[in-house]
């Protein structure tokens, strides 16, 4: 028997690590990977609450999150390939076309 709060705290830890990686990392692929980590942390929260309420709705929501994550990964990686082709770099500090 594990308290549901432990699962939620694990998910909060993973989410915070994802935020930290998102902010610290300078490689655009690694930033994208940390977004996936945050999505996974939220999925764990959904599954824990679905188990707590004995309902299946939370699991349906996780299914939709997975679908959206797959679509997002395909489009995002295509954008990354396109950026690399024109700028020859993956460093986010040098991808500043919209900044100035």
């Amino acid at each position: 028997m594990v308290p549901t709060a432990y699962y939620l705290i694990l998910a909060a830890m993973l989410f915070s690590i994802g935020i930290g990686a998102f902010l610290i990392k300078r490689n655009v692929i690694t930033i994208f990977i940390s977004i996936e980590l945050m999505l996974n942390a939220v999925n764990l929260t959904f599954v824990a609450f679905a188990h707590m309420w004995h309902q299946v709705n939370g699991q349906i929501f996780v299914f939709f999150v997975m679908v959206v994550a797959a679509a997002e990964a395909a489009v995002g990686l295509a954008i990354i390939i396109s950026i690399f082709r024109t700028r020859r770099t993956l460093n986010v500090d040098e991808i500043n076309l919209m900044k100035s």
């Binding site: 028997m1 308290p3 549901t4 709060a5 939620l8 909060a12 830890m13 935020i19």
Partner: peptide, 19 residues
């Protein structure tokens, strides 16, 4: 954010029950 979430989850841990 982590501290806030942990505080909320730990203070409500009795209402959240066990699994």
């Amino acid at each position: 954010i982590f501290c806030l979430l942990s505080f909320v989850f730990l203070s409500e841990r009795n209402a959240l029950s066990t699994s």
